[in-house]
Simulated assay, not measured.
Amino acid sequence: MRVDRRTFLKIAGAGSASLALAACGTTAQEPAAEEEPAADAEPVAVRTAALKGPTAMGLVRFMSEVDAGNLADNDYTFEIYAAPDEITPLIAKEGVDIAAVPANLAATLYNKTEGGVRVIAINTLGVLYICELGDTVRSVEDLRGKTIYASGKGSTPEYGLQYVLEKNGLTVGEDVTIEWKSEHAECVQALATAEGEAVAMLPQPFVTTAQAQNDKIRVALDLTEEWDRVQTGDETSSMITGVAVVRSAFADENPAAVDAFLAHYAESVDFVNENVADAAQLVGDYDIVPAHVAEKALPECNIVCVTGEDMKERLSGYLAVLADQNAEAVGGAVPGDDFYYGA
C-alpha cells in the first residue's frame, strides 16, 4: 500500500469497533447535489475520520483513488480509528471535517454541539443477525420461548432487538429471555454450550469470523429485514448502524467540497458492492478487517450511501425509535430538520 502526502491513514488499535458501531447494504443513492462542482473550484482540505469495521468499508475505493493520485479536486485525508471516543473530541475541536460514526452518536453530537454537525449520508444499514446451531428459527415468532445471548445492553443493539420483538408481539422477560454478555465471543461460547432453546444475536463481520471457527453456526434472521418487515402505514424507518457527518461550519463554508465528497463516496460504495473480491483486498490493505473475512462479510454488511430526503426519512424514524426507548441514546432528543444535509 502506498500512502502519499495527500492521504495519511492512521490505524488506531487492533480491536474491532463495538457492536453499536459495527456495520456494512447493497444499494447506493445518488448524492444530494445535482451538479458536479465547477472544474476550477479552489481545492480545500477535507479531513475525514472513520471507524474500523463496516462504517469504514465503503470508503476504501475512495481512499485508494486518492492514494493513487486520481482524485485531486480537493485535498482529501483519511484517518481510521478503533473506537468512537477517539473521534468525538476531534469533531468537537474541529480536528476533522467529515466523520463516519454510529447513527446514534451523530444525533448525540448534534445535541451536544447545538447543531454543530449535520448528517450527509447513511453509510451502513443494520448488521445484526440472529444465529443458531440448528434449524429451528425461520421467523421472529420462532424465538418465542428461547433465550437470546447478546451483547450491547443499554445501547442500540438492545433497543433494535427489543423493537423488532415487540413489533412481532413478543415481550422480553415473558415470551423471550435475553441474556446479556460483555463480548460477542461470549455469546458464541454460550450458544455452543447451551442446551436446546438458545440463539445468539451477532453483528457482521463477527458472524463471518464465528462461522469460520464453527461451521454449524447458521444465520437464522437478518434483523435489518425484520425491521423493514414491521414497517406499516407512515412508518418509513430503517435499522441503521452508521452515518457520515460533517461539521456544520465546514458545510456552510464549503458546500461544493461536501457535494464532491458525496459523489466520490457514492462511487466508492458502488465499487465495494459490485466488486467484492477487489474491495475486500482494499479492506485488508487498510487493516480494517482481514481481506478473507471481508470477502465473505461484505455482502451481508449492508453498505450504502443514502442521501437527501430518503436519508432523512429512514434516519429520523430510526432515531425516534431509539428515543422512545431511551432519549439519552440520541443525546436527549431527536434532532431537528437542520440535522439533515440536502434534505
Rank of each mutant, 00 (worst) to 15 (best):
L282N: 10
L282R: 10
L282Q: 05
L282G: 11
V283G: 15
V283F: 12
G284T: 07
D285A: 15
D285K: 14
D285Y: 15
Y286S: 01
Y286H: 06
Y286K: 03
D287Y: 07
I288D: 14
V289G: 15
P290N: 05
P290S: 07
A291S: 12
A291D: 10
A291G: 04
A291E: 08
V293E: 15
A294T: 05
A294C: 08
E295S: 11
K296W: 07
K296T: 11
K296L: 13
A297V: 11
A297G: 13
A297Y: 11
L298P: 15
L298V: 08
P299A: 12
P299D: 13
E300D: 10
E300H: 10
C301R: 06
C301Q: 13
N302Y: 13
N302H: 15
N302R: 14
N302P: 06
I303V: 11
I303Y: 09
I303A: 11
V304K: 09
V306L: 14
V306C: 08
V306H: 10
V306Q: 10
V306A: 09
T307A: 10
T307D: 12
T307I: 05
G308Q: 02
G308L: 02
G308Y: 04
G308F: 02
E309H: 01
D310I: 06
D310E: 15
M311V: 02
M311A: 01
M311L: 01
K312D: 12
K312R: 14
K312T: 08
K312C: 08
E313W: 00
E313K: 02
R314C: 04
R314W: 04
L315W: 04
L315Q: 07
L315P: 03
S316D: 06
S316E: 13
S316F: 08
G317R: 07
G317I: 04
G317D: 03
Y318S: 01
Y318D: 05
Y318R: 03
L319K: 02
L319C: 02
L319T: 03
L319Q: 03
L319A: 04
L319G: 02
A320P: 04
A320M: 03
A320D: 05
A320Y: 03
V321A: 06
V321K: 08
L322A: 00
A323N: 06
A323L: 00
A323D: 04
D324I: 01
D324Y: 00
D324W: 01
D324Q: 00
D324M: 00
D324N: 03
D324C: 01
D324T: 01
Q325E: 10
Q325F: 06
N326V: 02
N326A: 01
A327T: 14
A327P: 09
A327H: 01
E328D: 15
A329L: 06
A329K: 05
A329G: 04
A329T: 09
V330P: 03
V330M: 03
G332R: 11
G332H: 14
G332N: 14
A333C: 14
A333G: 13
V334L: 06
V334A: 07
V334I: 05
P335W: 07
P335D: 13
P335K: 01
G336N: 10
D338H: 09
D338Q: 14
F339C: 08
F339P: 05
